[in-house]
Design a binder for these strands. Structure first.
Lengths: 186, 186
DNA sequence: ATGCTACCTGAACGATAGTCCCAAAATATC
DNA sequence: GATATTTTGGGACTATCGTTCAGGTAGCAT
């Protein structure tokens, strides 16, 4: 008996999230350009019309994917910072490792995130979601050195973007001195 | 008599460059997603098949556009640096002004450049072209503090990307302290 | 059982995409 | 001038796109 209505609703939500996850995989593989109702449906293993049933349009699907992706990124970054802090280190090594990971094994995911990022540049309604991971980071640091923190965030973004057009991803060792310099206080 | 062959070639090249310029305008307006043979042809004022005649495929058109765009960007950045140097200043104000311009009046162009940038992330053959403006900058500075320079480049890229998802573009005055801090030596 | 509702899906429609084909025009070569 | 080559432009073919639609299925109240 226990909440059959919820059970049904949960099932519906599950489909939705499966489609969103499939969309993200498609973007990782082929980019936003590769996202169609049919490719997403095939990736998710659902009939084509299922994507149009759960999302009013392809645009809504992309928007939902960006929001989900940004939320994942934000929580991930949150725990990364938290872990680095609990170790008591200044975090330079941790940051270098994470950058190397984002440009190596997780390269597709990183590309997807920046493609959705640029999508937000053209659609104002997506910007709050795209800014979320920046906001999470901003909320975690003291505000007495705002300029230095903005420079740090910009540096991270720049290193990631530039790392994406390297022929082979930089290693954590190569990244380390750059991150060190970036974190060094003036 | 004088070089009829060149004359013909020039005319052919002219069509080509017109199509490339039209492609860039389309990307500025609607993004890479809006680029089709037909939209580009309409923008350039040429018949649809003209784009397929001068470029073997849509991909070739995008590649040619990226290369042209990167070359323009590189020469522009070159003269910007040169001007800043001749003024004897450290260039912080000049850089802040250029960033504000890139995020304000030239916002569409900046978006186009980063979309093509991300395109290069997925296609190795585009990467040399995408890296060109970085190379131009790199070749202009002394190599005795490479790390600092890499941080500077990453910072610029990050500030531009993040500025693209601001609801209203930052002014040169707002950018100034950040650029100042970014340029400050450790 | 009988509706009622939310959930799901196969088939199909109209629009638009990339690209090919062929003839006309322009240009170069003899 | 005659011929060959390049360039141009209109039309059409096929594939795929987003989306609609009509119907099917499963849980729930009456």
């Amino acid at each position: 008996m226990r909440q059959r209505v919820d059970g049904r609703k949960v099932r519906g939500e599950r489909r939705r999230t499966e489609i969103i996850e499939a969309t993200l995989r498609v973007i990782e593989r082929d980019g936003v350009a590769g996202v169609t109702h049919r490719t997403v449906a095939r990736e998710a293993g659902v009939p084509t019309t299922s994507t149009t049933y759960h999302f009013a349009s392809l645009d809504d699907l992309l928007i939902a994917t960006l929001i989900s992706c940004a939320r994942d990124m934000a929580t991930e970054v949150y725990w990364m910072i938290d872990r680095a802090r609990s170790r008591g280190s200044r975090g330079a090594e941790e940051v270098a490792n994470l950058l190397a990971e984002a440009l190596g094994p997780r390269r597709g995911r990183t590309m997807a995130e920046y493609e959705l990022y640029l999508l937000a540049a053209r659609r104002p309604e997506l910007r709050p979601a795209a800014r979320r991971w920046l906001d999470v980071l901003t909320s975690m640091v003291r505000h007495d050195d705002e300029v230095a923190f903005r420079v740090f965030l910009a540096g991270i973004d720049g290193l990631l973007i530039q790392g994406l057009i390297d022929d082979e991803p930089p290693t954590a060792e190569e990244l380390r001195p750059v991150v060190d310099y970036l974190l060094k206080p003036r």
